[in-house]
Design a protein around this nucleic acid. Structure first.
Lengths: 312, 312
DNA sequence: ATAATTTATGAAACCGGTACCAGGTCAAGT
DNA sequence: ACTTGACCTGGTACCGGTTTCATAAATTAT
C-alpha cells in the first residue's frame, strides 16, 4: 500500500506539502503541486480514510439505529436519511437492534468510541435519559417528540393531530365504535402511546376488547382480523398501526365472506392503495431527511413533519 | 477525551499492559488487570474505534452498493446482509449510486482507501472488468453470475432456471402468448438479460411489441397495463419484473373493467399475495446472507440461491 | 531603505491505538 | 545446579494521515 510518505519521498518534497496538495490548500507552488499530483496519479495513490478520520477526529458517518430493516416504516425513513446523507457526502451505517437494549447500549458506546459523528434513533428501547447521557459524545437524534427540556435533537411527525383528525373523521362518518391494532409494546413506541391518547380524546377510554396488540406485519393483521371478526359486539372500523397490518385485517374479512370492514391504515403503502382503504401518510422520507439534517447541523433542535390523511 | 495513555499513566502501568487488558489477552497479572479495569470504568473509557481500525488495517465494515433503498428488492437483500453482518459483528454501510457510474467509482476508491473491508454490489453500472480491477484492494461481491473466470465473488439466484420453469408452466397452462415488463435497461441488469434468454427458449424471439421496458414500481406497471390492454392481438399472460409492477398491470385491467389478466410476478411481495397472482420467490434475504459470507471470506467462490415458483 | 505581510516549505508532534521485541521472574525438567 | 520454557511487563516503532510552528524568501507598505 503506497502512503503519503512514499509520495513525499518520490517527489522529493515533505509530507506536509503532499498533504496540502491532497487537500487543495493554499501555499503550494504550482510546479510542485503539479509534480506531486503526477506522482500520486502514477502510483495510483488514494489517501487512507481511517488515518484521515482519526487525525481529524471526524468520520463523516452517521449511525442509524433501528430494530430491523425489513419493515416498510424503517425502509422509508432510511431512504430519506440516505438521500440527504448522500447529498452531503456522509456515509450511513445501519445498526439493527431487534429491540435489544444491550445492543442499543453497544451502539451508544461506539458513538463514544468515535465510530460515528452522530446517531439517529428511528426507534428505541432505552430511556430518553440514557440517550441524553450520551449526548456529550456526539449528536443524538430521536424520531419522536422528547419534550421541550431535553438535550436531544428530534424529528417527528404530528401523530397526535393526525390521529385525532382521522378518528374524528371516522366518528363523523358514522363509525361509532373503533377497534385498534397496535404493534407490540415498545415497538415504534411513540405511536402506541399516542394512539391511546387520541382514541381517548375521540372515542373515550380504550377498553381491552377493542385493542389488539402485537401486530407488525400482514400476518399479524390477519390474526387481528380474526379477533375482531369474532368480537361481539362488532366494531365499525379498524384503526391499524400500518397499512400492511390493515391489509391483513381487511383480507381476513374478505377471505371469510364477511362484509367488508372499513380500515384506516398508516404510511400510505402500496397495500392500502391496492385494497383501497384510507391511510395516514406520515411522509417518512421527509422525516428521515430532517433527522439527517439535525444529525449533522446545528439547526433547530426539533422538527415537526406534517402528515396527510388520505381518504379512500 | 481520555485515551489509552491516560489509563496507562493513572494506573502506573504501560500502554502495552492496558492494551492487553482491553483485548482480553493472556499474560497480565490478575491484580494489575483488575486495577486497570477499575480505572477504565472510573474514567468511563472506551477505546477509539478509528485508532484501532487504523492500526489493524481492518474496519469490520462492509459497504453495500445499491441504486436506491426504497425498493423492495434491495430492501430484502439489505435485510439479509444486515442480519448476517450483525451476527458477525460487522457494520453495514449503505452506498447509494442512483446508477451513476462516477459514484460507483468513488465507492471503489473508498475501498482502496481502506474505508471498507469489502464491497457488495447488489447492482452495478460499471463493467465487471472495472470491478475486477479493484479486486486487489479488498473483497468484491456481486449479485449476479459473473462467469467462471472472474476474480470476483458472487452470490446469485438461479434466474435462468426459474424463469424458464415459470414460462414453461405458463405455456403448458394454455397461455400461448406472453407479454414481458422489464425495468429500464441496466437496472438489475442481469434480470433483464436473463429474461430475454428464457423467453426465447420457451416462447421464441421476444418481439418489441411484447415488451414494455422502463418499469420499476407500481405506477410504471400501471402504464404497462395500459399498453398491453390496448395491444392487438392481446397477450394471454404478463411476466413482470417484480410483484409491485405486476400489481400495477393487474389493477389497470381491473380499474377499467377488463377481464382479469394473469400475471407472473417476482419476489413474493405482499402485493402478489394481496392480488393473488403467481410469483417467483428469489429468497433475497438468503442472497444477502450469502453475499455477506462471501464478503468476509477470502474465497473467490460463487454461491447459487435456489428460487421457488409460487403458483396462485 | 526598512518594516510588515504574504507566500512557501519542512520538521516534528499528534490522533489513539496495536504489536513486535527485549528483558526479567519463577517453577518444572534433567 | 543448570537449562528450559511459560508467564509478565515495558519500550517503542508502527498505522497514515493532519496540524502547529519555525524559518525563509518574495512582496507590499511606509
Amino acid at each position: 500500500m503506497t502512503n503519503i510518505h512514499d509520495i513525499a519521498r518520490l517527489s522529493g518534497y515533505s509530507v506536509s506539502t503532499v498533504s496540502r496538495v491532497i487537500n487543495h490548500q493554499k501555499y503550494v507552488a504550482d510546479d510542485k503541486r503539479a509534480k506531486v499530483e503526477a506522482i500520486m496519479r502514477e502510483l495510483d495513490y488514494v489517501p487512507n480514510r481511517l488515518a484521515r478520520d482519526l487525525s481529524k477526529g471526524q468520520t463523516k458517518t452517521i449511525g442509524v439505529v433501528l430494530p430491523y430493516a425489513n419493515h416498510p416504516y424503517f425502509a422509508r425513513v432510511i431512504d430519506g436519511i440516505m438521500s440527504a446523507g448522500f447529498a452531503a457526502g456522509y456515509k450511513i451505517t445501519l445498526l439493527p437492534t431487534n429491540y435489544d437494549m444491550t445492543v442499543e447500549r453497544r451502539y451508544l458506546d461506539q458513538l463514544r468510541g468515535k465510530a460515528y459523528d452522530a446517531l439517529i434513533f428511528t426507534s428505541r428501547s432505552s430511556s430518553l435519559d440514557t440517550l441524553e447521557r450520551y449526548r456529550k459524545y456526539g449528536q443524538i437524534v430521536c424520531c419522536e417528540d422528547p419534550g421541550d427540556d431535553r438535550e436531544l435533537a428530534a424529528a417527528f411527525t404530528d401523530r397526535m393531530a393526525s390521529y385525532v383528525h382521522a378518528m374524528q373523521w371516522a366518528k363523523k362518518h358514522g363509525y361509532e365504535t373503533m377497534g385498534v391494532v397496535l404493534s407490540r409494546n415498545n415497538v415504534i413506541s411513540a405511536s402506541t402511546r399516542v394512539t391511546r391518547r387520541a382514541y381517548e380524546q375521540v372515542y373515550g377510554p380504550l377498553t381491552d376488547d377493542h385493542l389488539f396488540t402485537g401486530a407488525v406485519n400482514y400476518d399479524d393483521g390477519y390474526h387481528a382480523g380474526q379477533y375482531f371478526a369474532n368480537l361481539k359486539p362488532t366494531v365499525d372500523v379498524i384503526f391499524a398501526n400500518g397499512d400492511d397490518i390493515g391489509a391483513g385485517v381487511e383480507q381476513y374479512f374478505d377471505h371469510h365472506g364477511l362484509p367488508a370492514i372499513p380500515v384506516i391504515g398508516q404510511e400510505n403503502l402500496l397495500s392500502s392503495r391496492l385494497l383501497n382503504f384510507s391511510t395516514i401518510d406520515h411522509h417518512l422520507e421527509a422525516l428521515g431527511q430532517a433527522a439527517f439534517r439535525l444529525a449533522t447541523g446545528k439547526t433547530r433542535t426539533h422538527e415537526l413533519i406534517k402528515s396527510d390523511f388520505i381518504i379512500r
